[in-house]
Amino acid sequence: MSAIPTVPELQDQPWHLPSRGRIGMLSLIIGESAIFTIFVVAYVFYIGKSLSGPTPGQVLEVPIFNTICLLSSSITIWLAERRIERNEIKAFGLWWGVTIALGVVFLVGTGLEWYKLIYHDGLTISTNLFGTTFYSLVGLHATHVVIGLAMLLLVLVFTLMGRVTEHHAERIQVLALYWHFVDAVWVVVFTVVYIVGR
């Protein structure tokens, strides 16, 4: 018989460890931050190094409305998180839906911006260094928004099917952590691309 050590005195003491979901998501966020850091560093390093136009100053407009939408989605998802803890499923679904809507508005805004840049200003990823770094960095962030939206939608579908209860609060909060991260990254991208880089 295998001898598994057990210690009688320990048995009634509480033993609490952090949630594995949160630790896992935090680890992912650390890893993702490193990816973004490399792209941001490349962007900053190459500011003003393009050999030909167009330059950021000529073509970029500051996406204020977009930014407000994305950042406020962090607030609405936080409200949703609080609702699910208290098992107020309807209110949760509502705030969750608003979050998705705000995310979609952001994506559409980015799409319109890119449309203008490509078809009116003639800036593509291969035009110059600015194009390469701009589309890569903003595109990397937009990819994260798309992935986030897909996961948020999945939760919304389950909510509409009536499958989501307060038992899922922790998992939903772990997912929300990712969304907060995506929003936080936008603050950096926004600063670098639209303020410093212009």
């Binding site: 890893g31 993702e32 490193a34 990816i35 850091t37 490399i38 792209f39 490349a42 390093f45 190459y46 190094k49 393009s50 050999l51 990823i125 291969s126 110059n128 260094l129 390469t132 770094t133 890569s136 990397l140």
Partner: peptide, 28 residues
């Protein structure tokens, strides 16, 4: 992760005509 990021840049250069490491276009 930095390697993954750099590999993405390399593929952008090779497939999409990017200039991250293209010294002819100001890249380094």
């Amino acid at each position: 992760t930095p390697l993954t990021a750099a590999q993405f840049m390399l593929l952008i250069d090779r497939y999409l005509g990017g200039h991250f490491f293209d010294t002819q276009a100001g890249g380094s």
